[in-house]
Computed example of a mutant assay.
Amino acid sequence: MLLAVSLGLLAAFLNAAAASLQQHGTQLAHQSLPPHRGGSPLAIVPTLARRLVHTRIWLAGWVTDLSGFVAQAGALTAGSVALVQPLLVTELLFALPLATAWSRRMPGRRAWVSAAAISGGVAIFLAVPDAAPVDGAANRERIIVAGVLAIIVVGVLLLVALGRRPLVQATLVAVAAGLCFAMSAVLLKLTSEDLLERGIAATATDWVGYGLAAATLSGLLLVQWAFTTGSLAAAVATMTITNPIASYLVGVWAFHAEPPTTAGALAGVAGAGALISAGVVGLSHSSIVRPTQDAPAGATRDHD
């Protein structure tokens, strides 16, 4: 369990660092572009892409992101999906000091309280006996059923989202993205186990790896849709909460992990979930961890 928790927290840190580096690399590349003179905004995408691959800070973010993916795979190999995925919400905690360093602003009261709530929730989740299932044997039939159900739910959410006002649309699409990333984590665990136990050749002929690619790509596309449709804060909070909840449920059911049954463990899971969710909502609404232009020197505090 210690190895899984350590690698899960490392993956969260690397994800936060990658997002921070890539965000600022994109800003630098975009600032170096010639002025856009009408036409479709998509016309600058090829030029921006060429600038990005020559921007060191963006490339460092890409390498860091890849390292985070490897750390997550290692965590899922060492522990259960239901244990590892909830730990990834600490990405927002790691984003807080990184954003503070970039912007040279101190976090406001909301950010500190939200960070404390997430920390407390994760501590309860790990400390309460039997709250976090350590591992279990994969049941591929159940995983297929979970995947089919996820596809159906995602399709319904997207159909309902069409034509809705921006905030509702962003929230519904973010839920769909969170479900895709939850299934991606489940399939990443299976793929990692395939590589270790059966080798590259057997893994290449297994449907699991292709399912992993499809789930991850779908999640990435949906999260961009959610981010550009409505409130960024609402989309981040909704996706960040949906992913661990769905991962926990699928991880317990599809891997025969032992779910909590005692009143204390159930109360611990509920309390941890409430604290983490409240903290995620608070931090996602704090401008200190959302994409902003760097504050000028001398700016010292985020007044959220």
Rank of each mutant, 00 (worst) to 15 (best):
G209F: 02
A170V: 02
A150F: 00
M106L: 13
M106K: 08
M239P: 07
G209C: 04
L59Y: 11
S286I: 04
A4E: 06
L159N: 09
V122E: 07
L87Y: 06
G199I: 10
A73D: 08
G268T: 12
Q169S: 12
W58V: 11
K189H: 10
L14K: 09
A150I: 00
L83G: 06
V63N: 06
V154Q: 05
A215R: 02
L76F: 09
A73C: 14
S277K: 11
R140Y: 12
G25M: 10
P129G: 09
H303Y: 09
L162F: 06
L249Q: 05
L87G: 02
A267K: 04
G219A: 02
V252W: 03
G282K: 02
L157Y: 02
A29C: 13
W253H: 08
L195A: 13
V250C: 06
R140W: 07
T216D: 02
G230F: 01
A226R: 01
I276K: 02
L96N: 03
G38T: 11
R105F: 00
P166E: 04
A116P: 10
V168A: 11
F227S: 06
S119C: 08
S114G: 09
A132V: 01
E141H: 14
V128Y: 01
G279F: 03
A16S: 13
A267P: 04
P35L: 07
V250P: 00
A254H: 05
G219R: 01
R104L: 08
I118Q: 01
A233V: 13
W102G: 04
T100Y: 03
G121R: 01
I57D: 07
Q224R: 13
L10K: 14
A99Q: 09
S284E: 05
A101Y: 11
D65W: 10
I245T: 07
L249G: 02
P97I: 11
L222F: 00
S277C: 08
G39R: 15
P97F: 12
L158A: 00
G282D: 07
L283N: 14
S192T: 15
L14G: 12
A297S: 10
E141R: 15
V156E: 01
L7C: 12
L2I: 14
H24E: 15
Q169Y: 03
I276E: 01
S286F: 01
A226V: 08
N15H: 13
A16G: 11
A82K: 11
A267L: 15
I288Y: 00
A137R: 13
Y248G: 00
H54P: 13
W225I: 03
L266A: 09
E258D: 13
G120M: 12
G147I: 04
V70L: 15
S287T: 15
L212W: 06
I245Q: 00
L179S: 05
M239R: 12
V70W: 13
G61Y: 12
